[in-house]
């Protein structure tokens, strides 16, 4: 009950401190590992989950005013990534695993993800790996609903 109250209160007493600071920005990367093998047998390297398109035309942006489910799911995954660093929970791990796995072709490999945070140090943008998940069988995640 206390947990539910702690989730509800910020919605009726919001802080409204939008973009107070530009915090380190999360990206989710994943790789597939052959079953029973070490991470050295990853199929390909780390790849970004749902990389954004190079260009979007104005009409595509306007279309997304009405219909933008994938991008909103991606924003939710970024929230899960931030929560996983601030207050680690199995819920965040499961949400990321399931939603990354949903967009992958079915396979016998194991799925592993990592959280990379981008931030600015002086004039340079630096990339820091903050979390690496335990590999889990892809088929097992894909069997269940999100």
């Amino acid at each position: 009950m206390l947990r539910l109250i702690s989730l509800f209160l910020p919605t009726v007493i919001p802080s409204w401190r939008f973009f107070n600071t530009v915090a380190p920005s999360p990206r989710i990367e994943f790789r597939l590992i052959e079953p029973g093998q070490s991470a050295a047998h990853a199929v390909g390297g780390w790849q970004e989950d749902r990389p954004r398109p190079q260009h979007l035309r104005l009409w595509q942006m306007l279309q997304r005013m009405l219909w933008n489910p994938q991008w909103n799911e991606q924003l939710y995954l970024f929230s899960c990534a931030e929560r996983l660093i601030e207050a680690p929970s199995q819920h965040s791990i499961d949400e990321i695993n399931q939603r990354v796995a949903r967009l992958l072709p079915q396979g016998a490999q194991e799925l592993q993800f990592r959280l990379v945070f981008l931030s600015r140090e002086g004039v340079r943008v630096v990339k820091l790996v903050e979390y690496e998940s335990r590999p889990v069988p892809l088929a097992q995640i894909q069997e269940g609903p999100i």
């Binding site: 973009f19 107070n20 981008l118």
Partner: peptide, 24 residues
């Protein structure tokens, strides 16, 4: 926030935040 006053915060939003919808 001095970073907002100087304009560097908004530059960071476009440069490396998760929000811009395209690389362009």
């Amino acid at each position: 926030n001095p970073e907002w006053r100087s304009g560097s915060a908004l530059r960071d939003v476009f440069r490396f935040s998760a929000y811009p919808v395209s690389e362009a």
